[in-house]
Simulated assay, not measured.
Amino acid sequence: MPVLELRRLRLLHELALRGTLAAVAEALSYSPSTISQQLGLLEKEAGVALLAPDGRRVRLTEHGRVLAAHAARALDLDEQARGELESLSPGLAPVRVAVMQTATLALLPTALALLGDRAAGLRVELVQLPPEQGLFELTARGVDLVVAEQYPGHTRAHVEGLEREVLGTDPIRLAVPPADPARALHELHERAWAMEPAGTAAREWAVQQCRAAGFEPDVRFELADLTAHARLVATGHAVAVLPDLLWAGSPAPVRLLDLPEHPAREVFVSQRVASRDRAGIVEVRRALRDAFAATNADPAA
């Protein structure tokens, strides 16, 4: 029987995760026809049908699902082997990191400065992604590390093959315009709100806080950019709930009020178990940990 080609196994793994040939092609910068051709060759190598037509799309057959599961394990073993080889060589392989916006603002400048001193030859590639998307790309091997968040009472699923390290907690406060007389959340039932897009953990958590205070928020500004939230609040157009990391140790341009029970989100870094010992990843994790520890200034000061 022909040897199964690892690069083609990855394409099958990606299809199992992303669902369509077009999505796999976009993620890996190939054409859909190339993906289809390579998966056809993988079927010949396997000697069984891996894909079946499903309308205009394709789906994995039972054989395809079995082989996709084996492909994930094969990719893990490949990554572990590369990590061991890297530990024996003088160079460091590049590390690709998905970072949520507040971590980009508050942690990366310090983390990159630390890496410049500790691992000057390490190439770090950064992409700013929402936590939900970043964690998916970590599973799909689009990135090596993810800095993400978990809100109180909204735990994120633990995915097999991924592990996480908590960097610390980040207080969440109510942000109102400087001249707004409000003193508590329940007084803001008639204000316009800025919130993150529907479907995100941050949005669900913020809405629940408003409902617990007895009202449904009037969300007029739905934006992923938290600096835009802050600007809308500072200029008197909205109120919001925002994490302290957004201010990155600088005085906030808004008035901050404590929420009931002083909630805080958990900020964590996640990687694949198979890559935990890669020297470059170890260095990036350490730099992120130290950078978070350095961001402890009170933004309300």
Rank of each mutant, 00 (worst) to 15 (best):
A184H: 11
P131D: 13
V176N: 09
L232V: 12
A194W: 10
A228T: 14
E149S: 14
L174Q: 13
R265D: 10
E137R: 03
F221Q: 07
Y30C: 05
L39Q: 05
S33H: 11
H13F: 15
G19T: 05
D290L: 12
A274F: 05
S250L: 08
A240D: 14
L88I: 12
A198L: 14
H229K: 08
A72Y: 02
L114P: 11
I35P: 02
L17A: 13
E160C: 04
H158A: 15
R56S: 13
A291H: 11
E222V: 15
Y151C: 00
T155W: 01
V58M: 08
Q101Y: 10
R276Y: 01
W247Y: 09
E14G: 00
A106E: 09
G161T: 02
V159Y: 02
P130K: 07
R231P: 04
L288G: 00
V143I: 10
L77M: 07
A297Q: 08
R82E: 14
L41N: 10
F215E: 03
D144T: 06
G236E: 11
P243M: 12
E86K: 11
E149Q: 14
H13T: 00
H189G: 15
T227G: 07
A291D: 13
Q208S: 13
L17F: 04
D117P: 00
R7L: 09
G249K: 03
P94M: 12
E196V: 08
V143E: 02
Q80M: 15
Q38L: 13
E187N: 09
V97F: 06
C210D: 07
G161K: 06
G64P: 06
L122H: 15
A201I: 03
A98H: 01
L114H: 12
Q133I: 04
V97L: 15
L174N: 15
L60I: 08
R191Y: 12
P181Q: 03
G161R: 06
T20R: 07
A49H: 08
T34F: 10
L77R: 12
A184N: 10
V166K: 00
G47T: 06
R7G: 13
A106K: 02
D180G: 10
E222F: 03
I35T: 07
L6T: 01
S33C: 00
L188R: 06
L114W: 11
E26M: 04
D76S: 10
P130A: 12
Q80L: 12
T227P: 00
L162F: 02
